[in-house]
């Protein structure tokens, strides 16, 4: 069997995080080159602060200043830094117990080499030049017995929200059956498969019939025309949208298929699209074809009489 097709899938979003009262004070202090913790019910000072006590679950409110210097309690060498990490050169991830704190903070230590790292070593905060009220205001820690830079008061507003960007890089791989379908599309063909048990024709084909659980193997070539079973008119714009609204997103049931798929209908006014309308594919120019359903630019009305409701009602 030929190799399944795959393609990159990039997912990215800048999530926001409302901080609530406790973390708001922590982030605001970082902007001023101060590190703060919170005192728990058992007297321990938690850094970073816990919003709720790990023992009693009660809200914690007693903010305590701790030092910007401390001791490495444990560490691990990151030889190949990844996107989004604190440093772009090899560094140590370390649990740092700041002076005055009872719990350790996880952060990067810019030691240059694992030979310079050891448990028990003294480190200090290397403050970022431009601080915004985020954990990245601590650029990293550095080996040192000296104090860190002095706090720098500001009269800015309290930090109440942070932005937390997420970037995911996937490789999306189609199944072997979908890959055959996609390679067919690259040649302008619509290749479905018939279930040997129920006889239903799936387009795109699946590795197995969802109803019978058996592999489908018999290939069925389908025509590029069919019936709109149902549809909606998308009038609403949104982040990441690929087609400019308004557009008609319609379920198209190709003649001979037993399942409809979602595609675009153009070629008439949106409010003229009907359930039962007969449509045909409008293919992009052949030189633009690839292994994708997007080779079909859209479907357009054929002008035939509408399909009777009974012919597609079981596909709704």
């Amino acid at each position: 069997m030929t190799k399944p097709l795959s393609a990159p899938l990039e997912v990215g979003f800048d999530y926001t995080r409302s901080l609530g009262p406790t973390l708001s004070r922590f982030m605001t202090a970082l902007r001023q080159r101060r590190v703060t913790g919170v005192r728990g019910s058992d007297g321990r000072v938690h850094v970073p602060p816990a919003e709720y006590d790990p023992v009693t679950a009660e809200p914690l409110t007693e903010v305590v200043d701790v030092a910007s210097t401390g001791v490495v309690r444990s560490w691990s060498w990151a030889a190949e830094p990844l996107e989004g990490q604190p440093l772009d050169r090899p560094f140590a991830w370390a649990l740092v117990l700041l002076d005055g704190a009872d719990t350790a903070l996880l952060h990067a230590v810019d030691a240059g080499s694992p030979d310079r790292m050891r448990t028990g070593m003294r480190v200090r905060v290397r403050w970022a030049d431009d601080r915004v009220g985020a954990i990245t205001d601590i650029a990293c820690f550095e080996p040192s017995d000296e104090p860190a830079l002095e706090p720098l008061d500001d009269d800015g507003d309290p930090v109440t929200m942070i932005t937390s960007p997420v970037r995911l890089h996937y490789r999306h791989t189609a199944s072997a059956e979908e890959s055959s379908f996609l390679r067919g599309l690259a040649e302008g063909r619509l290749l479905g498969q018939r279930c040997p048990a129920c006889g239903k024709v799936y387009l795109p084909p699946r590795p197995a019939c969802p109803t019978d659980g058996v592999p489908t193997a018999e290939e069925v070539e389908l025509p590029d025309h069919g019936t709109v079973t149902t549809f909606c008119i998308v009038n609403v714009p949104f982040l990441g949208q690929r087609i400019t609204p308004p557009y008609v997103a319609a379920y198209v049931l190709l003649d001979g298929a037993d399942i409809a798929f979602l595609h675009l209908v153009l070629g008439c006014a949106a409010d003229e699209v009907r359930m039962g309308m007969r449509v045909e594919a409008v293919w992009k120019p052949r030189e633009e074809w690839g292994p994708t359903l997007q080779n079909i630019d859209h479907f357009r009305p054929t002008g035939e009489p509408d399909a009777p409701y009974d012919t597609y009602s079981q596909h709704l």
Binding site: A7, L9, A174, V234, F238, Q241, A249, Q294
Partner: peptide, 13 residues
């Protein structure tokens, strides 16, 4: 509405 490769990006939430 994450655009899955090979499909038509007609999804709208």
């Amino acid at each position: 509405s994450v655009p899955i490769p090979f499909t038509m990006p007609v999804h709208a939430g």
